[in-house]
Every structure is written in C-alpha cells, then in structure tokens.
Design a protein around this nucleic acid. Structure first.
Lengths: 154, 154
DNA sequence: TCCTTTACGTTAGCCTTGCTAACGAGTATG
DNA sequence: CATACTCGTTAGCAAGGCTAACGTAAAGGA
C-alpha cells in the first residue's frame, strides 16, 4: 500500500486488462468507503434491516418473497427482518388486493426519511471528496458517470 | 440502441449534487455486481474467510490483531477465522521473530492462488462488460480510472 | 366442478459467526 | 523486581442465516 506515483503522473491505464483491474479495484474500494459512511440513526439498525428497508424505499411495495429475492435471503429470514422493521414502525404490512396469500410491505414515512437521510449523508461525504479534486478531474468524472451507470445495466 | 453520441440521452450530470448521487449509485451498484462474481472455488468459503485471506494476500504477513483490525472484527472472531483457513491449508501461522506474544499469519501458495483466481474472474467479467461499450465510452472510463483511484485515497 | 398441485408466508429448530469476559504468557515500565 | 499492559486464546452468549414442515390460498387437470 501507499506506493503512489507523483500526482502529475497517475498510474497509466493503457491496456484493456489494466483498465479492468484498475477500475475494479477503485470501484470496490470506493464503495467500501461509501458504505462506512452510514448515518447515525441507521448505525443502530442491523445491516439486513437497512438493506431491506432501502430496497423497499427504492421499489415502493413488495411481497415478502420478492423482497427476500432482492436481498438474496430466504423467505423465513426476510420474515424475521420485516417483523423487526415493523416493530420499529419503519415498514407496514398490508393485504394483497387480489391474492390473499401474499403480504405486501411498504416503508412508512419514518422509514423513508431514515433512508433518505442516509443517502444524503453519503452524498455529502462524496461531494466533499469531489471538491478536493481539480476542476479538470471533476469534469472527467462528470463524463464518466453516465458510462458507469450504463455499465451496471449491462 | 443509439449508434454513437448521446442519442439515448443518458441522465445528464450537471450540478455537483447530481454528480455525487449519480456516482454514488453507480459505484455501489457496480461493486455489488462485481462482488457477486465470486469464483467457484471461493463459493464454498464463507465470506469472512475470503476477506481475511484476501487481506493476507494483499499485505503479506500480519499478526492476528492487525488482521482483525483490517477486517473490522474482534481478535477472538479472527482467531476462529484463521483457524478455519489454517485447517484448509490456505494460511500458515508462524512465530514472531522477536515478540513471542504475537502470532504471524501468511497465505500459503494455495491460498494465494485462490485469491488470484478470484480476481482474474472478476476482471474477466468486467472486461466483458467493457467490451460491450463503445470505444468512446471506454476512452472516457480510461480517463476516469485514475481519478476514481485518487478519490479512494482522499 | 372437484381434486391435485403449486405458491406464499409462517413457525420451529439447527448451525454459523459475531461479541464480551476472563485468563495465561510475554513484554514494557516504574 | 513488581506492576501494568499487550497478545492470543478459551468459554459462553446473542443474533442471523438456513432447512424442514405446515396451513391457507390460488391454479390447473380430469
């Protein structure tokens, strides 16, 4: 670690393989840093609950098995998670309009506020880092952002 | 699909706040995708063991408490983790040359090979995605890679 | 239509993994 | 040389994931 070249000559990215591995490393590390910038109120919430709540905020209303699938967890596990979220008043359950087997979950106003605050927090952290770049570097990232976004949809 | 240029009108990234949130979202999503591309041999290894092994490969030789710190885990937990890695022949323990309290851990040849294969796997996945971009988009990412790397070091 | 099959959510019970507390051995410090 | 501190380890506890099994609801076939 810590063997950085001079600032004027950052690591050259020439070959396709270099591009892959540099990009992979940077993205993984940056996401770790971002993940650690959790807001204080969410600190007290276990990670699985945060994940489920965030997914509910993103998608609106989901059945239990759908939510479990999104979170990469089995229905019984998700059952426990949403139970805890419900106890804290962060999600609410309701009956499916036509299929009475399904139980739908949606975030409450409070749940939504919590997630929003967390995003705001991470954005603020990243924004501060971006301010420490040169205008030219920011411009580069501005151009790259849509491409990175496209990459996640391939 | 558009041939070239901003025909698809991807999300415009104008303000600083937009840049932060777009970048944050893309980085988090991309890292999730990357994380899921774990190599088959590592599939069988629990995540904590993979993490510890990867850290050992990156840093070479570490004492137990250092490794625990890197992985954000308490010494007793790390103790169990390296015990399991040792059983599988992926790491080996040795005495500290001067301080007889400390126990040093280093990856074995096999452990190193496993992590290397995993990285190769993820690189291959990302490289394939990159090939699906336009040359112009790749060029954009090539310019952005060093900036992203710098970002992780701020 | 009725009977069988499938899907959904829930409960029960197990296993893994993290933690704190406590301790012995080794090192630093007065 | 006695005391305080550090490191690794063990023991025991709590949380969270999983599979198995079950009741209810919907879908499908004779």
């Amino acid at each position: 670690m810590g063997v950085d070249g001079p600032v004027e000559a950052p690591i050259a990215v020439r070959t396709a393989a270099e591009l892959s591995s540099t990009l992979r490393l940077a993205v993984m590390r940056l996401s770790r840093r971002l993940r650690s910038q959790r807001s204080e109120e969410l600190e007290s919430l276990p990670a699985p609950q945060v994940g489920a709540l965030a997914t509910l905020v993103r998608h609106g209303t989901l059945a239990l098995h759908e939510l479990a699938q999104y979170e990469g967890v089995r229905p019984p596990s998700m059952n426990r998670i949403v139970g805890q979220l419900e106890e804290r008043g962060l999600v609410e359950r309701m009956a499916h309009p036509t299929d009475r087997r399904q139980v739908l979950f949606a975030p409450t106003r409070e749940g939504r506020a919590l997630i929003k605050e967390d995003r705001r927090r991470r954005d603020a952290w990243l924004a501060q880092r971006l301010r420490e770049l040169t205008p030219r570097e920011r411009e580069t990232l501005r151009a790259a952002a849509p491409v990175l976004e496209k990459l996640t949809n391939l």
